[in-house]
Each structure stands twice: as C-alpha cells, then as structure tokens.
Computed example of a mutant assay.
Amino acid sequence: MNAPTSQPTPLSFLDLVAVREGSTVAEALAIALRTARHAEALGFARYWLAEHHNMAGIASSATAVLVGHIAGGTQTIRVGSGGVMLPNHAPLVVAEAFGTLAELYPGRIDLGLGRAPGTDGLTMRALRRDRIEREEDFPRDVAELQHLLAPAEPGQQLIAMPGAGTRVPIWLLGSSLFSARLAAAQGLPYAFASHFAPRMLLQAIELYRREFRPSAQLAAPYVIIGVPLIAAPSDEEAEFLASSTFRRVLGILRGDRRRLQPPEENFIAGLHPEERAAIADFLGAAVIGGPDTVRHGLARLLAATAADELMLVCDIFDPALRLRALDLAVAARDALTPRP
C-alpha cells in the first residue's frame, strides 16, 4: 500500500448518460453537463463517458461528440472516453476525432480504450460489418493509434490530420488480465472496470504493477478503479436511492434493459436469494451509505488496492441528489487524508 500522503486521492466521474424513466435524451445530456460542471467545481480530476450502443436508457453512443460537448461546457476538468471500444472503429478515425478534440481543448482530453464491443452481437455486426476481431488486433490497433497521435515522421504516408503530434494520453481499460498485461508492457495508465466486474480487480492491478515498463507517456504505474457510489445523509436513504442501481443491474443480468428507474422501497428484499447474490457480485466494489459508511468504504478500497485515483459511477434517479452524493464523496475522501 502507498504511504500516507497529505494529498487527497483524486476523484473522477464516469457517466453513461442515463436516460431516466419519463425523461428524454435531451434532458439526459443536459444532466450530464450539469454533473460535469459540479464535478469540476468540486475539484474532480476528470470526467469520462462510456461507449455503448443499442441499449435502452443509455445515451453515450456517440462518445467523441459527447466528450466535445462536456469539454466545451467546462473550463479545467479533463474530459475523455471511458472508453472508446476500439474494435468498433478504425484507429485513424479515432485519432482524427480525438486529435480534433485535443486541438479544441488543449491539455484536457483523455482517450480511454476498451477491447469489448460494448453492445450485443447484432449491433456489433452493424458497427463492424464483416470484420472478425482477433486477439492480436487490439494490441496492434493501440500501437497504430499511438503512432498516429505522435509527431509525423519524415516520409510518413498516413497522417492523422488533425491528430498527429497531439499525443492525446491513451489509457487502457479492462476487467480481466489481458489489458492489464498490455498496459504494463506499453507503459500506459490502466483503469479497471470494477464498477461492474470487480472479481479480478486485485489480481489485475497486481499484475499490471509487477510487469509495468516505463514509457515516454508514463514513468510509473498509475491505476484508476471504478467505484459505484450511492451517498446520502443516512444509510437508510442511500439504500433506498440505490434501488435504482439495483434495478438497472438486475435488468442487465436478465437481458431486460430499460431506462433508469425511480427508487423503490424494499426492492432488494423482494428478490430471490440468487438475484440478490448476483447483484452483490456485480456491485462488489460499491460504496453505498451515509457519510461514515462512505468514508469507511472508500478507505477499504484504498487499503486493498492502493489505487492512484477513484472513478465514481453514480446512478441516482434524482439529478440533484446525485450532485449531493458527489459532495458527500468529496467530504468522505477528505476525511481520509492525513493532516500535514
């Protein structure tokens, strides 16, 4: 574990831009921008948006467009993808899109890359057409992206314009050992998707740190972990608000995706034990509760992982209560920081 420091652990935010029941996509996009501005005011390090396709209730499919929307509506916070699902795109297209963003918002754009399709088989075929993804394609495409975002070399025939020379920071995302090993070999920062797949969290980050090789982008390992967060003034209210997340997770597990649902009293109590266990496994890294519970939950995660940064995922139905949850998270994080 890292030694205690007087600097608080950076907090960031991952947004899937949930469309709430009874609301619209336009309202979801407006809520995302308000949330990003609030996170910026609280000193969050970055605000990422995730690529998903053909999923009811998620409006983040055009990820680069949303990155530009959020970056244009904020001033200092880093904005990026968490992530772009690289198998769905040609590296040149990604380099041009994020190179353009980097020129518009210098020093503020992150490019997080994932290896999964981020959708179902039918939609995957619509995105990729007849392309069949092989295991060796992702490392090759990452290397091509790095080359396209680096300064153009004499005689280089394929140049991303915009993109060449922007050196947009690349992050690798994952929920298994594959991307952890690749991030280590390439000397890239690593974000583990523990907000929905926490089972291999400790094994993946241990492998990443052990095998890390310094690079021009990064001198030492850097780990972000995803943390589902539901914070409220009391444990009881937090558990009630978390039922919206529980309902979303159960829908994912059942293959019945819907818009984000309002909270429901005693939702968990009405489920079968197997369903409760599946939700608990999905949300194994979650921090749900009042101020003391949140503080202890964040401390537990940091003690177990020594994460360099926590990326919060907060699916609270009422947008104002989601902003309040971020306030409470910052207070809990600050209470963990040793006084100099």
Rank of each mutant, 00 (worst) to 15 (best):
S60L: 03
S60V: 01
A62I: 12
T63I: 15
A64E: 15
V65I: 15
V65Q: 15
L66H: 14
L66D: 09
L66G: 10
L66W: 10
G68S: 11
H69W: 12
I70D: 08
I70W: 10
A71V: 13
G73L: 09
T74E: 06
Q75V: 14
T76W: 12
I77W: 06
I77C: 02
V79W: 04
V79I: 11
G80P: 09
G80I: 10
G80L: 07
G80V: 08
S81R: 06
G83P: 03
G83H: 00
G83Q: 00
V84E: 02
V84H: 03
M85G: 00
M85Y: 01
P87N: 02
N88E: 07
N88W: 05
H89R: 05
A90P: 06
A90H: 12
P91N: 07
V93T: 09
V93Q: 11
A95T: 02
F98P: 05
G99Y: 08
T100A: 14
A102Y: 10
E103F: 02
E103S: 14
E103C: 14
L104P: 04
L104M: 13
Y105W: 10
P106V: 08
G107R: 04
R108S: 08
I109T: 14
I109Y: 09
D110C: 04
L113W: 00
L113F: 01
L113Q: 01
L113S: 02
G114C: 02
G114T: 01
G114L: 02
G114K: 01
R115K: 11
R115G: 01
A116S: 10
A116L: 02
P117T: 00
G118Q: 09
G118C: 08
T119I: 09
T119Y: 12
D120S: 13
G121W: 04
L122S: 13
T123S: 15
A126R: 15
A126H: 13
L127I: 10
L127R: 07
R128I: 00
D130S: 09
R131C: 01
R131T: 07
I132C: 05
E133H: 02
F138M: 00
F138Y: 04
F138C: 00
P139A: 08
R140I: 05
D141A: 07
D141K: 03
D141I: 01
D141M: 05
A143N: 06
E144Q: 15
E144G: 06
Q146F: 07
L148G: 08
A150G: 10
A150N: 10
A150D: 14
P151T: 11
P151S: 12
E153A: 15
G155A: 05
Q156G: 05
Q156S: 09
Q157C: 13
Q157I: 13
I159V: 15
G163H: 10
G163K: 10
G163C: 13
G165T: 15
G165D: 14
T166E: 12
V168Y: 13
P169N: 12
W171R: 02
L173G: 00
G174K: 07
S176N: 07
L177V: 04
L177W: 01
F178M: 11
F178E: 09
S179Y: 07
A180Q: 09
R181D: 15
R181T: 15
R181F: 07
L182W: 03
L182R: 01
A183M: 01
A184N: 05
A184S: 09
Q186W: 04
L188G: 05
L188Y: 04
P189N: 00
Y190L: 06
A191G: 08
F192H: 05
A197E: 04
A197F: 06
A197N: 07
P198S: 06
M200D: 13
L201E: 04
